[in-house]
Design a binder for these strands. Sequence first.
DNA 1: GCAAATTAATGATTTATTCAAG
DNA 2: CTTGAATAAATCATTAATTTGC
Lengths: 233, 233
Amino acid sequence: MDDDSSSSNQSCERNETVRSRWNPKPEQIVILESIFNSGMVNPQKDETVRIRKMLEQFGAVGDANVFYWFQNRRSRSRRRQRQIQASLSAASNSIEEQSARSSSGGAIQFQTNFVPSSVSSSSLGGVVGNANDGLFPFSGPMEIDQNSSITSILCSPTDNSNLNCSSSGFITVFINGVAALVPRGPLDMKAMFGPEDLVLYHSSGVLPVNEYGFVVQSLQHGESYFLVLNMNH
Amino acid sequence: MDDDSSSSNQSCERNETVRSRWNPKPEQIVILESIFNSGMVNPQKDETVRIRKMLEQFGAVGDANVFYWFQNRRSRSRRRQRQIQASLSAASNSIEEQSARSSSGGAIQFQTNFVPSSVSSSSLGGVVGNANDGLFPFSGPMEIDQNSSITSILCSPTDNSNLNCSSSGFITVFINGVAALVPRGPLDMKAMFGPEDLVLYHSSGVLPVNEYGFVVQSLQHGESYFLVLNMNH
DNA sequence: GCAAATTAATGATTTATTCAAG
DNA sequence: CTTGAATAAATCATTAATTTGC
C-alpha cells in the first residue's frame, strides 16, 4: 500500500494529545453526495485527487479524507440497504436496482489505497452558507456498475469542443406545465423542490423515491411530470 | 447520414397556396432546444420520428423538418462557439484535443461537468409558474443517449493536476442542486448554459441580466441557484 | 438559557474476504 | 497454493446533536 495520500495540507498539526478528525463543510458534503449519487461510488485515485481539489474550495481536506468518505459511504449505504431489505422483505423493485454484479463482466479494479500518513484537518473560517437545514439527504444505495468511463469536463466558457456546456448534465422536463431544467440522473426532491413532502407523478405512475428522498431513476428528457403534495398521512 | 429528408410526411403546414416553410411554434422550439441542449444533438432516425411525434402536439411538422432543424442547429452552434472562442481566445485548452477523438461512427456524446446532487442552502419553492401553460404530458419515451450514466466534475480531464479550478477565476456554485464551476464575475448566460432563454433564481430573487445576457453581479461561491426556462415570450 | 451528560453520526482503523497473477 | 491488491465488514474514536437538571 503505497500511501500516497498527500493527504494533508492541514492546519492543526501539532497534535500531541488530540487527534482531530476532518469535519466536512456542508458544501463539501453536497459535492460528495452529488458525486456518489451520480454513480461514482468508488472513485479511482486520480478522481479522488480531483474531488479533493474541488472540495478544498470550501475547506481543508486531504485525499485520504475523500477516500475514507467514499469507503464509509459505500459501507453504510450497503448496510442500510440490507436492513431495509431485511425488515420489509422486498417488494418489487422494478427497473433499476441491479444489485447483481458478482463476476460476470469485467470488474475493473485497480486503485491504490490511501493509507493515511498524516492528518488532515478542518477549520478554516469558511462561509457556511446555511447553518443547516438539518436535513442532508443521504442518497441511497445505488450501486451502479462502475466501469466508469467517466468523463469529467469542466464547464468553462473556454472549453468548448463542440457542444456547449449545457449539453451536459441537465435535461428539460415539464413540471406542472412549466419547463424546468433538472439534473440528469437521480434527483433529490428536497434539494430541487424544497422541504415539503412531495410526490412526482408521471403518466406511468408515481415516481419511486428511495428512503432519502431521491428519485432514483432519472427523469426523462422532455417528459411531463406533476408535482403534488403527498397526501398519504 | 442523411437520414431523413425523404420522408413523405409533410411539413407544409396550413395549405395556403404558396409553399411556405415550416414555422415552428414556440413550444416546439422549446422542445427542440431542450433536446439539443440535453446532448442529443444528432438524433438518429427513430429518435427523429419520436421527436416529430412529440412536436406534432403543437403543430404540423415532418421528420424532415426535424432533421433540418438539428442540422442547422448544430451548424450554428459550432459557428457561435467559434466566435466565442475567437473573442476570448484563452490559453489552455488541451481539451480540444479530446474533442477530436470522436468522429467515428458512434456519435458518442459528451457528458458533463455537473454533478447531480443534493441540498445546500436555499431551495426556493418550486418551479416558477408562468402564464403560458400549455405543455403537458408527452408520453413518448424519449430516449436519451445510451451510454452515459455517470457524471463527473471538476477540472479538465487532462489532468493539469494542480491549479485548483477556483484559482483561475472559477467559483463553485450549486445550480439546480448540481455543483457547477462558473467563472467569477459577470456571467454570460448563453455561453454558459446555451441559447435558451433562461433565468437564474436565487433565494434573494431573480438575478438581473443585462441586455447582453450577462448576469452582471457575480454568483456567490457556494450558493445555490435555480435555473429555469424563461417562459415570458 | 447554560452546560454537563447522554446519544447519534460519522471519520478513521483494523480485520477479513475476494480475486487474479504467478 | 501463495501472494498482493483492492475493498467490504466490523470496529474504534471523536465530534455534533440532544437531553437533562439547574
